[in-house]
């Protein structure tokens, strides 16, 4: 199993490959793109600036550092879809990233863009982004026919479902799963907003929800709408929403990025499933958080490495 970690600079790449990251992923926000496309048209799902490498030169240097350590570098082009007039610029960027910088693979969600890239650059290696929402084996087949190499499972796909998809999808593909850090409230691939317009739309704790009862044919609960409206299994709607906000704080906001007592970050975690993931054929474990501080990514990488070694020892002992 490989550990896949986000990086935003050469220094970060040096640090993280030394901690055992065999795969790195990053975004790119070249100045030419920023000038021509403005602040609202992003090359990937993260904002221009801090969550991206700033130039092709820096990307090239980053790839050299990674390759020297035996690691690979993947570039995100993971918007669910792009306006077609951007395709020419994107194709140019991919060609430069591949030929000049030596990037190993591209993380793409848009089937149109995948088709374009494979036609123009047949040797290009494509990983299907979680934003393509590959939730079933037939979707694997759809993308496999486009010539991709790896499927990245979206968040919250159950192990049994992954197993079934991998069995049916075939071992000619690689499979990658999220393992640590930030959650998403909704399915990323079916989210039709942009963080460019003020950040995440969904997990703003200020949202107020007012329940409205539906009048429906055959609804037997019409006789006691108030009781039905206010409580389900003794839980009031207000109590439920308190729980929801708590979950947002823990699962989505990583407890405000505060570390735990041993310095490890808190938040979404799949470490207990490492052995199972290996057994079903997941080959790469993704650590999320391109915008997170380097320290956090260091600690998480180190934690994942320790847990992976521990899980292998346990397997050996059981034998």
């Amino acid at each position: 199993m490989k550990i896949l970690v986000p990086v935003n600079s050469v220094h970060e790449a040096e640090t993280l490959v030394n901690l055992g990251a065999e795969e790195l992923y990053c975004g790119l926000s070249p100045e030419a793109w920023r000038k021509s496309q403005g602040q609202e048209f992003w090359l990937n799902r993260r904002e221009l600036g801090k969550a991206n490498v700033g130039s092709l030169e820096e990307l090239k240097e980053l790839v050299v550092v990674a390759h020297r350590a035996g690691s690979q570098v993947f570039l995100t082009l993971n918007q669910p879809g792009y306006a077609p007039e951007l395709y020419t610029d994107i194709l140019t960027t991919v060609r430069q990233a591949q030929e000049y910088c030596g990037v190993d693979a591209f993380i793409v969600a848009d089937p149109g863009l995948i088709r374009l890239l494979k036609e123009a650059l047949p040797a290009v290696v494509i990983h299907v982004s979680s934003l393509a929402a590959v939730l079933n084996s037939a979707a694997v087949s759809f993308f496999s026919q486009l010539g991709v190499k790896r499927i990245i499972f979206p968040r919250y796909v159950q192990i049994e479902t992954m197993k079934s998809i991998i069995e049916r999808g075939g071992d000619h593909l690689e499979y990658e799963a999220f393992i640590l850090n930030d959650g998403c409230v909704f399915e990323e691939g079916y989210c039709h907003v942009s963080h460019a317009f003020g950040g995440a739309f969904c997990h703003n704790p200020a949202w107020v929800y007012k329940p409205i009862k539906i009048k429906e044919e055959g609804n037997a609960d019409q006789k006691c709408p108030r009781e039905r409206l206010l409580r389900v299994n003794k839980e009031t709607f207000g109590e439920h929403m308190d729980e929801y906000r708590r979950w947002l704080w823990i699962g989505i906001k990583n407890r405000g990025e505060m570390p735990g007592p041993k310095g490890y970050p808190l938040g979404m975690c799949g470490l207990c499933a490492l052995t199972q993931l290996k057994e079903i054929g997941v080959e790469s474990l993704k650590i999320v958080g391109r915008e997170a501080p380097l320290k956090k990514r260091q600690q998480v990488s180190s934690l994942l490495r320790k847990c992976w070694i521990l899980s292998q020892r346990v397997i050996l002992l059981k034998r």
Binding site: N204, W207, V208, Y209, I212, K213
Partner: peptide, 11 residues
């Protein structure tokens, strides 16, 4: 089937 949630954002 029984509820809609009307959303508003005071922020």
């Amino acid at each position: 089937r029984f509820y809609w949630l009307k959303m508003s954002d005071p922020s």
